[in-house]
Design a protein around this nucleic acid. Sequence first.
RNA 1: GCCCGGGUGAUGAAAUCGGUAGACAUAGCGGACUUAAAAUCCGCAGCCGCAAGGCGUACGGGUUCGAUUCCCGUCCCGGGCACCA
Length: 874
Amino acid sequence: MQEKYQPQEVELAAQAHWQKTGAARAVEDADKPKYYCLSMFPYPSGKFHMGHVRNYTIGDVLSRFYRMQGFNVLQPMGWDAFGMPAENAAIQNGAPPAEWTYSNIEYMKGQLQRLGFALDWERELATCRPDYYRWEQWLFTRLFEKGLVYKRFGTVNWDPVDQTVLANEQVIDGRGWRSGALVEKREIPMYYMKITAYAEELLAGLDRLPGWPEQVKLMQKNWIGKSEGVRFAFPYEIDGKAEKLWVFTTRADTIMGVTFVAVAAEHPLAAHAAKTNPELAAFIEECKQGGVAEADLATMEKKGLPTGIFVTHPLSGEKIEVWVGNYVLMGYGDGAVMAVPAHDERDFAFAKKYGLPIVQSVGATIDGKEQVFSTDAWQEWYASKDSYCVNSGKYTGLAYQQAVDAIAADLAALGLGGKKVQFRLRDWGISRQRYWGCPIPIIHCDSCGDVPVPDEQLPVVLPENVSVTGAGSPLAKMPAFHECVCPKCGRPARREIDTMDTFVESSWYFLRFCCPDNDRAMVDERVAHWCRGGIDQYIGGIEHAILHLLYSRFWTKLMRDCGLFGEERLDEPFANLLTQGMVVAPTFYREDAEGRKTWINPAEVELSTDERGRPVAARLRADGQPVSIGGIEKMSKSKNNGVDPQALIDQYGADTARLFIMFASPPDQSLEWSDAGVEGAYRFLKRLWRIVFEHVSVGIAPAFAGGELPDGLKTFRRQLHQTIGKVADDYGRRRQFNTAIAAVMELLNAYARLNDDSAPARAIRQEALEAVTLMLYPIVPHLCEALYAELRPGHAAGEQAFPRADAGALARDEIELVVQVNGKLRGSIKVPTGADEGAIGAAAVASEAAQRQLQGGAPKKVIVVPGRLVNIVI
RNA sequence: GCCCGGGUGAUGAAAUCGGUAGACAUAGCGGACUUAAAAUCCGCAGCCGCAAGGCGUACGGGUUCGAUUCCCGUCCCGGGCACCA
C-alpha cells in the first residue's frame, strides 16, 4: 500500500475498474427489488456548475447506498437539450445551436464521468434528437385529436424593434434586453394543453404523496388554487340588447357593498366604451405597455378609468358603474371583478384614490366588542370572514356561510348565477416562437384547418444546419421546411413553425430512460418494471417545485389515459422527492466613477481577517488593491462568484469535492462555498488514508468475531455500532448526509485515542476500519474502493452489503441522566439501565446538585423523562 | 403584490417526537515535532464575570415543569409567480 494518498491515481483506477465490471449497468431483474434513482437532467450549457455537482452527488450517494442494501438500482442521465441559450450562443458566435449543444454534451459527459457517478450511460438520451422528440410529437397528435390540445389566442411580450416575441426573462424593466425598446403585449394564436381538466386530480393526488416535502405540496396546492365561491352576472343593456357581465367572487356575502365593477383592459366592454371615449382608448393603449409577467403586473401602480357604462346590481337593482382597471387580468376567470371597497384592501385603496363610494356591508365583533367601521383607514377586520352582514337588506345578520348560501340561492333563482368551484390554475400554453425546440406537428390547410401530422410522417425533423439572427424563427425562411401538402386533401399547405415549450420534453424523459432504445413505441413494459409504485427517488432544485414537477405529474396522467402503461396504473411519477438547496458564494466587486460594478471572482481575491477570524478586508491578488465585499448569493455568471468544479477536481480529486459538498450542509438547505472547507475535507481523506495505512502496515488482522472485551474496547465498539446504526438511518431515512459524516469523524477521533495494540484491539481496529470504508463508500467511493481492497484483498467495497449494527455491542448496564432544577441544568446522576421512574426521581432529588438548590426543602414536583433527564420543580 | 422557505458562536452547521444549546468541521489562539517552514499531532475556545453565577438560538409577546422546536405579531434574507431551465 502506498503511504501517500494520491487522489488522481486512486480515482482513475477505481473508475477503470467500475467501467470494466459494468458496475453501473441496470438490467431488469425480477429477483431483486428495484430502486430507480433519478436526478434532474441538466441543460447542456457548456460546463457544470456546483449546483449540478451537488445534485448528482446526492443521487450517486443514494444509488450506491441502495445498491449495498441489496436493491437493483437504475441511475440514468440525459440532456435537456432544447432551449434559448443555444440560440443566444448562435447569435453571438454564428455556430448552429445543434453543433453548440452537441459539443457541450460531449464535454459535460466527460465531467460527469470524472466525478465517478455510477450512471448507466447505455440509457443516455438527448431531447433534441429526433428519436426522442418524435414520441412527443406523436403524443401531441393523440392529445390534439382528444381535444386535450387546442388553439386560442394568448398574450406574449412583443419587442417592436426586433420584431420578435420575448421570454419574460428577456424583458428587463419593461424593455427588450437587446433592443432596449418598450415591450408591448400582443395577442397571438397558440396551442394550449388542457391541464385544467386535471386540476382536481392534480390537487387530490398531492395527499397521496407522503414522500414529498410538505413545502412543495403546499406550493402546488396554492398554485392550483381551488376556491369555492359564486359566479354571477350584472345585467346591462347595450345598443338595445340585453347582456350580462360575469364575475367570480369568494366573498358573495359582501355583495351588498359593491360600489363598482372593474374589467380588464382587454375586456370587450372596455373596447366597446373606448370607441366613443378617446381618453379611455388611450388608457387601454397604455395598459398594453409592459410585459406579461405576473410579478410586474402585481407590483405596478393600480390605475383605472370609468367607462360610462352602467350595469344593474342583481340583488339591489342599483346602477353600478363599470371601470377599466389595469390590475384586472383577462386570463383569470371572466376578466372582470366586483369591487367592494369596504371589504377588500385593494378595492379600498382604489376607491380612496378615485373618490369612489365605500359602503360597509359586513361587521365583526371581536372580544365582545362590536367593531366600528370608518372609511379613514383600512383595518384588518374589514376583510374577515368571521363576520355577519350589515346594511344588507334581507341578509342582514347572517354569518359568512349562511349569507353566501342565501345569496347564491337567490342569484340562481334569478337565473343570474350560483355557486362555482374556480381554479387559479390556467391551461398550459406550449407554443414558442423559437427555432431550437421540438416542432409542433400540425399542418395548416386553407380548406381543412389545423391537421395533425399523420404517424407515418413523424417525426417532423427540425433542420439543424441553420443560421440564427435573433429576429424571428429561421424556419420561417425555410420553404423546404414549411411548405408541404395537406395530409387530408392533398392541396398545398403550411407547416407550423412554432416549437414546443421545453418543459414538454422534461415532462416525460424519466419514462423514456426505461426504454430509450425502443423505436416502435414511446414507452414499453420496462416502464412498469422501473416505475412501479413511482420513481423511488427524484432529486433536484427547489426552484422546480411548481412548474416542472406539476407538468410532469400532468403528462404522466395524460400518458396513462392514452393507455400507454397498459395494465400498470401509474398515476404519479415520483414517489419520493428531495429538493436540494442552492449553492451560494460570497461576492466581491469594484465600482467605477458612475457606480457601475465589476464583479470579481472569489478565486482572485485574498481575504484578510482580524485576530478572531472575522473577514475585515479583501484585495485582488493580481494588483494587491482593495475590493468591496458584497453579499452571499447564488453562484451565477452575472455576479461572477461561481467556482468551477473542474478546477476543484484537478486540484483535490472528485472525492474531496463530493465529501465537501455533502458535509457542508444538509441537502435541502443552501450550501455556502468555502475554500477552507474544501481543504478540511481533503485533510480528512488524507487522515483516513494514513490511519488505514498505519493499520495495514502492521499487518491486517481478522475482524473481531465475538468474546469478552476490556472496558475501553467495549466502549469503543459500542460507539462503532451506534455509528453504523446512525449512518444507515441518516442515509436511508433522514437523507441527512452531513451528520452521517460527522458521526464517522467522531468515530475516527475515538479510534485515534484507542492507544491499545493488543490482539483484541487489532481485531476491533480491523472491524472498525472495514465498517468505516463501507460507510463512507457512497460518498467517497474511489478512496473507499482503494482502502477496502487493502483491508480485505480481493474484495470490492461496492459489492459488499452495507454494515449492520450488532445489538449485542449496543447493550449497556448504566446510563447517565441530567438533573434539572426548574428547567435549568444543575448536575447529573448515573442509574442502572432498567431503573424504575420512582427510583430515578429519588436518586435525582438525593443528588448533591439538587440538595444544594433545595436547601433542605421538599420539591414541589419531580418530572422523570426516561433515558433523558429529571426535572425537579421547587 | 401573492405563494413557499429560512434566520443558532468569527464561519458552515448539530440538537431526529417539546427534554443537557453549539456535536462535527472551518477560521483563530496556545503547545509538541522541526535549524526553519510546510505537513502532522495535542490542547483551548458562545458572551459577561476572578469566581459563584447570570445571559444567550433575528426581534416582541404567549403556551409549558421545560421552547432553537408549538402559537400570535414584527423585521430581515432567499426561492417561485405560468416564455430562464
